[in-house]
Amino acid sequence: MMKDQQAYPNRSSRDDQDIVDQINKSLENFDEAFSIEIPQPSYFEQKIKMQRAETKKKWLKELLIFTVTAAIILGFLFLALFHQPEVFLALQVLTVVFICFYTMLVKRKVKMGHE
């Protein structure tokens, strides 16, 4: 176990170091209080197989959704481009505006989360 014993080297923080030592001692006792039952490797192997199968299923589902969505969007765009070019241009502008707005919103949310 890696424990930080020299995190507070200066004199003024000796109190903090004492607290850190107490925390480490208590957590060490806490660790010693529990004996963990470790499952057999076969248990983990089974879990891995199940997880891999589930991931593959999820990936295929996502790929299907992506392909169908892309086909619909592209179909709609080509239809607009050849039959109503003004709608096509308006869609381009709206998309750029939406992306800018969304990026700003996400950045603001992340910033607020950190504060």
Partner: peptide, 28 residues
């Protein structure tokens, strides 16, 4: 093993503070 006052204090501590303390000082 004793469930001492330090453990009690750690339990009362908000996750935002407890997680960094454990990672920094116990796990290094």
């Amino acid at each position: 093993q004793a469930w001492d006052d330090v453990m009690e204090a750690l339990d009362h501590l908000n996750d935002d503070l407890r997680v960094p303390i454990i990672l920094k000082h116990y796990y290094g």
